[in-house]
């Protein structure tokens, strides 16, 4: 469903992606792990055209991702994104955040969208917060609204960019719980994360990225429990046993 073929990307003179080839099948949960600055987030941002890429090709359901082409709107309405820092619209209520895309981009009928919006807020456990503005919500609540906003687009896949990295530790569980349920329901998900427990328990596949290349990939349990590559072993040791 999502295909990356030899994708290269530089920021100025620094090459952050040095030939990424990977694919994500429908219904699959793929976690991308790796050290900071390895290019994990850049891959996600290239998939929905928030970032351009220099060489290679990315396609979503056969449609080439080109951020300067009109078709990018089509891709973005099919591939939603959840950000590390939530990026909710602070001047709109939780419900308004959720319905913004369906109402103003997809131009769906209002009553129907509002009903779906409320149902989605209930799904992420925030039915009673529909009229709250983001600054009145905790980080974990804001991120769950952001997930509802992504779901409201009725996407074929959701990209998660370190969705729990900006949260207080005690709020991480709520967000991961919502994500796990989505995975169980068959949503296609690409998750950049440092939550190794989530990757092991929920992901079908794990990609370990370092220095702009995929160092190792495979079924989540085998990569995380028996990493083959020395760099993967070193990274996992440092993440799992920081002391």
């Amino acid at each position: 469903m999502i295909e990356l073929n030899d994708v290269h990307k530089s920021f100025g003179k620094v090459e952050v992606l040095k030939g990424i080839t990977a694919s994500v099948e429908k219904g699959e949960v793929v976690c991308i792990i790796g050290p900071s600055g390895s290019g994990k987030s850049t891959i996600l941002r290239c998939i929905n055209g928030l970032e351009s890429y220099d060489r290679g090709e990315i396609s979503v359901e056969g449609l080439k991702v080109d951020r300067d082409a009109p078709s990018i709107v089509n891709i973005r309405t099919q591939v939603s994104m959840v950000f590390q820092r939530f990026n909710l619209f602070p001047h709109r209520t939780a419900l308004e955040n959720v319905v913004e895309g369906p109402l103003f981009v997809k131009k769906e009928p209002r009553a129907q969208v509002l009903e779906r919006g409320r149902a989605l807020l209930a799904q992420v456990g925030l039915a009673e917060k529909a009229d709250a503005h983001p600054p009145q919500l905790s980080g974990g609540q804001q991120q769950r609204v952001a997930i509802a906003r992504a779901l409201a687009m009725q996407p074929k896949a959701i990209l998660f960019d370190e969705p729990t990295s900006a949260l207080d530790p005690e709020l991480v569980g709520d967000v991961l719980g919502v994500m796990r349920k989505l995975a169980d329901d068959g949503m296609t998900m690409v998750v950049v994360t440092h939550e190794m427990g989530f990757a092991r328990d929920v992901a079908d596949r794990v990609l370990f990225i370092d220095g702009g290349v995929i160092v190792e990939q495979g079924p989540a349990k085998s990569v995380l429990n028996q990493p083959q590559h020395a760099r993967t072993q070193d990274f996992l040791r440092r993440v799992l046993h920081p002391l």
């Binding site: 929905n48 055209g49 928030l50 709107v73 089509n74 973005r76 309405t77 939603s80 994104m81 950000f83 820092r85 990026n87 909710l88 619209f89 913004e100 895309g101 103003f104 981009v105 997809k106 906003r149 687009m153």
Partner: peptide, 21 residues
């Protein structure tokens, strides 16, 4: 915040809709 613009783009908003909404 730049994140606001990216959030708008990520739900498919174009330049003008991002500005207006």
């Amino acid at each position: 915040d730049k994140g606001q613009i990216e959030a708008a783009q990520s739900i498919g908003m174009g330049w003008w809709l991002t500005m207006r909404r």
